[in-house]
Amino acid sequence: MAESYALTETTYYILLALVQPRHGYGIMQVVEEYSQRRIRLAAGTLYGALNALVEKGWIVLLPPQEGSRRKEYRITEDGLMILQEEIARLKELYENGEAILKGEK
């Protein structure tokens, strides 16, 4: 689990969206909302990312709900850990940026 690479915005926001179980379209909508319409995930990009994240074990496909054909996904423990590491990394970037530009460092 020594994953030291930065996550892409796409990956980061998908993981964040999947802290709650959601289907593809739901992810697109909530990411647009979180980012104040800055990021509009396109379906092809999202589909590829979801498959890659399932393969990594960071998210899981939930058993199908009765009466719905839509596939729902949710973040796993591993995914949550990755997300926490990423937030710590972003915090470091952010704090250094603020401090240096304010002349505190």
Binding site: T8, E9, T10, R40, A42, A43, G44, T45, L46, A49
Partner: peptide, 11 residues
Amino acid sequence: GEFNIFSDIDS
């Protein structure tokens, strides 16, 4: 709404 297939450079 807007319709694109890809929304990042990687894809």
